[in-house]
């Protein structure tokens, strides 16, 4: 377990990391887990909505026995104006009681749309959001309700946009600052998302960081991406680009309440990296957090695995 006020480095768990969990867990301070990976959600209104997945839960039990776990939800869809899923929040609360997540984060996103029949359908991707007072009011009410249920503040992640909503009333960082001020929630700052928006939209990540209330940042995400049809995607397709580590070195010292840095990748890209590649990203993150200690040793994995750098 890592100390509460130190900055840990972790990895977002996916099934390709099963071997890593057994043999390399000494190299990370925590695992971030997506709770939805451990149950089947049959949708609002289903007689038995959340059905646990025993195989996956076995694995989560093993992870939680080894390391601190934090929750990174993908299904709340808190910015969907047509629905607010308090049942999902209660499910999260049950799992918080079971696993004692060090913190709980979610996306500031709308990915579900309620249908007239009462069911929801998935929008296929996170809808771009209008940074307006209307959305801010809606989110403040919901976040306060969710935090009341959970009994703790949540963190919300900045997103990627390929087509920003024009004529917004405020900037995204100004919107996040207002959300923090009015609800007490924290911010999960995804540096790769800033990098994606810089590549596609020409937005300055540094301007975003300068405008954001960094006192609210408690977790940072780092990841890699890829280009398709001339557009750079947040595909989590392996190692982080150098720009992301540069941003990490720049912003981390300015976040007094930062608790963890999490490397994210999709399991389909694991064969390109292997355990060694994941360990290398962890080591680079530690180096960015502690640039003065250029030879800071990464905790050695418990197996014969070795760093690939």
């Amino acid at each position: 377990m890592f100390k509460r006020h130190s900055i840990g480095v972790g990895v977002l768990f996916n099934p390709s990391l099963a071997h890593f969990v057994e043999h390399c867990s000494d190299a990370v301070d925590f695992y971030s887990v997506i709770p939805e990976r451990f149950w089947n959600d049959h949708g609002r209104g289903a007689s038995q909505r959340f059905v646990p997945l025993p195989n996956e839960i076995d694995l989560l039990d093993r992870i939680a026995a080894k390391k601190t776990v934090v929750a990174h939800g993908v299904g709340l869809s808190i910015a969907s104006a047509s629905l607010f899923d308090l049942d999902y929040v209660h499910q999260l609360k049950d799992w918080q009681a079971r696993y004692g997540f060090a913190w709980i984060s979610e996306h500031l996103a709308a990915v579900r749309i309620a249908q007239a029949a009462g069911s929801d359908h998935h929008a296929g991707l996170a809808l771009p959001l209008p940074w307006d007072e209307e959305l801010l009011d809606l989110l403040c009410t919901r976040i306060q309700q969710a935090q009341d249920v959970l009994g703790q503040p949540m963190l919300f992640e900045n997103g990627v946009e390929y087509t920003p909503v024009p004529f917004s009333e405020m900037s995204e960082p100004a919107f996040l600052n207002a959300l923090v001020a009015r609800t007490g929630c924290g911010v999960l700052l995804d540096l790769h998302n800033l990098h994606v928006n810089a590549k596609n939209l020409g937005r300055s990540p540094v301007d975003f960081i300068d405008a954001l209330n960094l006192d609210a940042v408690q977790e940072i995400h780092i990841a890699g991406g890829s280009t398709m049809h001339g557009i750079y995607l947040d595909s989590h397709s392996g190692p982080c680009p150098p720009e992301v580590f540069e941003l990490l070195a720049l912003v981390a010292p300015r976040c007094p309440r930062l608790r963890g840095v999490t490397f994210e990748f999709l399991e389909s890209y694991f064969p390109l990296m292997g355990d060694h590649g994941v360990l290398a990203q962890i080591a680079l993150a530690r180096q960015a957090l502690h640039p003065s200690a250029s030879n800071l040793p990464c905790p050695l994995p418990s197996s014969s695995a070795r760093l690939a750098i």
Partner: peptide
């Protein structure tokens, strides 16, 4: 007006592709 501008944005092709 927002939707019209977004539909004309070249990034909308990527949204449709990701969907």
């Amino acid at each position: 007006r927002r939707l019209w501008v977004m539909a004309r944005n070249s990034g909308m092709r990527m949204n449709c592709t990701l969907y």
